[in-house]
Design a binder for these strands. Structure first.
Lengths: 337, 337
DNA sequence: CCTGGAAACGTAACCGATAACGATTGCAGT
DNA sequence: ACTGCAATCGTTATCGGTTACGTTTCCAGG
């Protein structure tokens, strides 16, 4: 029996099996050039010692590690859904996944975090990385796929059809009869925030409704950022009859603020979000929102990264996935004055 | 400007700064024995090159890495909630987190996965690990905290008060008037599965209802495992009027099977789950379940692991957290025959 | 002027594994 | 028996960083 604290290394195996570490390495990696008898000896020694190769040591020397990385600045429901999709795409692919999260960044937003995480991982540990909602351009020795990339980014990315989704969402409100529709924008540097605002403007334009700049609040996708903005919009004498928020997280905060101000949803106010996070279904009333299947985003991102790493990707580097409107209880025709 | 594919290493910094790598290392790690002038030079070179130390290389030599690991066999909503709690506990603690997920195991259950992951990480990369719902005993050079440990395990662990939770859940059904209550058990090797079954028996005993062994189905916490069991229970002539499933995932499958068989919940069948995963709130009807705050489990596990690593833990190594019953629409008094 | 000791810094071993290379062996063909 | 080639396996450099140890520098004190 081996004592609990013995880290079994390759040289231990080599000693027991009576061969060199090189031979052990060949057996472990299934390389050519080892006799059947030696393989058996080494296997026995490995079994006996309970040896497992060290990810760290091998990744230092190897070029390929068969491990993909994922970095995200925090773990919201959003991220969890993405993760499920990623895992599904990686299932039985031979690639493992490492998720790196820096505790110091939790909840706060400091620029450049993704670059720091990236260089720490992609030095040797991972063959490529998925970055969820980055803050800026990144560079790395290995391929990067961005989920919800920054505006103007040219690298590989996966995102929802934010323009169409937002247009549909606002058109839904206009169809119900709303004419004063407020908007709470997302973080400006992200392409998604930009497109969602474009969709808002496009839908209004199509309906012949002029954009009132004072009805637009500048949020940053962080749910908390929506609170003062919603409060400002809803305390106006000429408050909007509907609010479209660029993310569900922010939309849920709008619901909270409305309740706090004694407004009933959807009688006094209609609210639409974007994302369709799980929580949106379980509020009362349910949140009408634009579904962008974060599961699918994760799935596609992982599929792309996998192929980029193996060098067999021949589809476009920018994937755009369809969205669809999910109508729940938070929207209705405006009450007549 | 550095070209995109240049991995900046410590020796690059050393060359630019005109010192040895040893000195660079001392500066990076804030060690004693470097003159102020040299520190400035090195700092400048680091800045200029955009150097970031490699997690892999340093962890190979170092004993402490300030990185904690988490291994889980799959990513369910369960795991995502745990993660949020873990991240919260680690926030600004100086510890980063690495989550390792093996794609080959996704969805399938192969024994010993946690040991494999553990040795790959804890060799050098992490200072300690959290293991979610393990399959067996584990050993490691570094501390391990199990969330929902195996039965009879003596190592550090965090779990819900499964016995009390299950007892309350079944008592709730009995209070409503149910007398034939089916049970779908979880994976037998886990302490939680065992305690939940004990709670089921205890509640029946307290109400003076004899246990009918044929009403107990042997699941394994995997939602799919509940399907044939639920089908068998509900197709009997003397089918139970209520079913208590040892996890929400399985309980949701029971709801599906009931619908498939044309049974109306809660009129024809009451269902209770355990866990309170987000999905339970958004089904129709909502699932009555036992909340065990997986967020809290994650939080406590991370808090414990952190202290175990730094050697300052003085509380008991086994933490048990309270549960509480969440009554939703899936339970009601049985219809009178 | 010499010595002692601390501060500052470089050298080289080392962590665990991989891979290029060289050395040895086995065996078939002549 | 000898050559040639392939199969087999050990040696060693290497990955990037850390650290034990040795060396040099510098200054204070005798």
């Amino acid at each position: 029996m081996i004592e609990a604290n013995a880290p079994v290394t390759m040289s231990d195996v080599a000693r027991i099996a009576g061969v060199s570490t090189a031979t052990v390495s060949r057996v472990v990696n299934g390389h050519y050039g080892v006799s059947a008898r030696t393989i058996a000896q080494v296997r026995t020694a490995i079994e006996q010692l309970g040896y497992e190769s060290s990810l760290v040591a091998s990744s230092l020397r190897r070029s390929r590690t068969n491990v993909l990385g994922l970095v995200a600045h925090s773990f919201q429901s959003y991220t969890a859904e993405v993760l499920k999709g990623v895992m599904k795409a990686l299932s039985r692919s031979g690639f493992d996944l490492i998720i790196y999260a820096n505790s110091d960044l939790y909840g706060s937003y400091s620029e450049g975090w993704e670059q720091r995480h990236l260089t720490r991982l992609s030095g040797t540990l991972t063959d490529g990385c998925i970055v969820v909602t980055p803050w800026g351009e990144m560079r790395s020795r290995t391929p990067i796929v961005a989920i919800d990339p920054v505006r103007g980014s040219t690298g590989p990315s996966v995102m929802a059809d934010n323009l169409a989704g937002a247009t549909t969402a606002v058109a839904h409100l206009l169809d119900l009869g709303h004419r004063r529709v407020g908007f709470i924008a997302g973080r400006d540097s992200l392409a998604s925030a930009w497109s969602r605002e474009e969709g808002y403007r496009a839908a209004l334009a199509a309906a012949g409704v002029a954009v009132d700049p004072t009805l637009i609040g500048r949020g940053d996708f962080n749910p908390e950022s929506a609170v003062p903005l919603a409060r400002a919009l809803l305390q106006r004498a000429d408050r909007p009859s509907a609010i479209f928020a660029a993310s569900d997280g922010m939309a849920l905060k709008v619901l909270e603020v409305a309740r706090e101000l004694g407004l009933s949803v959807p009688r006094d106010l209609s609210v639409v979000g974007f994302d369709n996070i799980p929580e949106s279904a379980s509020t009362d009333p349910g949140l009408t929102t634009v579904d962008q299947s974060m599961y699918q985003l994760g799935y596609e991102a992982a599929r792309m990264l996998k192929s980029l790493v193996t060098g067999e990707w021949d589809e476009p580097h920018q994937i755009v996935l369809p969205t669809n409107l999910v109508v729940r209880g938070s929207t209705a025709a405006p009450a007549r004055d």
